[in-house]
């Protein structure tokens, strides 16, 4: 298990991305699965910075990463404003241009590109738990984590 803390501001996103890529590569994820993980984490952190911390830059994002032979799990914790994922309507990705909304894509991408996603609010903290399972086959067992 790895735990790290990042300042809750947009300038942290590039460093967070480098951190996630290094974890994913060490865990043996493919380049595309690594990109999906990087995107999901970027969207989640951007939401924390924008909505939980409302752009005020003194908040902290706590990262906990768990790896097992089958999966990589990332837990993001903040103590900002309570986030209610149900309040975010999913975008209509088939709508014509004029009717496209410009919000809701971030949560949509997280849900699509991660295998398990759970939002909790416990003791004044938003806790987002995201898991990506590694595809395992008899020829390529999940032993490289």
């Amino acid at each position: 298990m790895i735990t790290r803390f990042f300042p809750g501001r947009y300038e942290s996103l590039e460093e967070i991305a480098e951190f996630v890529r290094s974890i994913a590569q060490a865990a043996g994820l493919s380049p595309f699965e690594t990109y999906k993980l990087e995107t999901a984490v970027d969207e989640a952190c951007s939401n924390i910075i924008e909505h939980a911390y409302c752009g005020i830059s003194d908040g902290v994002i706590e990262f906990t990463i768990l790896t097992t032979p089958e999966a990589i799990t990332i837990i993001l914790k903040d103590n900002g404003r309570k986030f209610s994922p149900d309040s975010v309507l999913p975008p209509d990705v088939n709508a014509p241009l004029k009717k496209r909304k410009d919000h809701g894509l971030g949560i949509f991408i997280i849900r699509k590109w991660m295998d398990d996603v759970q939002f909790d609010y416990i003791d004044g903290h938003n806790i987002l738990t995201m898991t990506k399972y590694r595809d395992c086959t008899p020829d390529e067992p999940c032993s490289s984590f």
Binding site: A17, Y35, E38, T39, D42, E43, S46, L97, K98, R100, D102, H103, L105, G106, I109
Partner: peptide, 19 residues
């Protein structure tokens, strides 16, 4: 190297303006 929904929003907003 990377695009998030923030970048996608810029694309859609600009496409609406252009079209």
């Amino acid at each position: 190297e990377f695009i998030s929904s923030a970048g996608l929003r810029v694309l859609i907003t600009t496409q609406k303006t252009c079209k």
